[in-house]
């Protein structure tokens, strides 16, 4: 099944999308077949690439547009939403 999904998620952790958070996104994206694209301020990042994600330079409070395409887009998107909602497991 091929899907094409979009959503917007806020970056909640204090440090923004820094190395640890970006690593979690990349590692999660690599588990799914879907292509996941992160978008902010007109910049796009491949969710599988930690450097792409860091390159977006997202501080706390920024909002990220997520797009998932291809097989497993649904579950990939749900997993991403959960990871964002948990503030990447960081509370400080």
């Amino acid at each position: 099944m091929t899907d094409n999904l979009e959503t917007t998620l806020p970056v909640l952790n204090r440090l923004g999308l820094h190395a640890r958070a970006a690593a979690k996104i990349a590692a999660l994206a690599q588990r799914f077949q879907a292509t996941i694209i992160l978008e902010r301020n007109g910049l796009q990042a491949d969710a599988r690439s930690i450097l792409d994600i860091l390159g977006l330079g997202c501080p706390q409070g920024s909002e990220i547009r997520l797009r998932a395409e291809g097989p497993e887009a649904g579950p990939a998107m749900a997993a991403m939403a959960e990871l964002f909602a948990q503030a990447f497991g960081e509370y400080a």
Partner: peptide
Amino acid sequence: YILDTHLLILQDKLL
């Protein structure tokens, strides 16, 4: 976790 980050960078498409 820094080491996990480094493993991801090592295989990153940009590198």
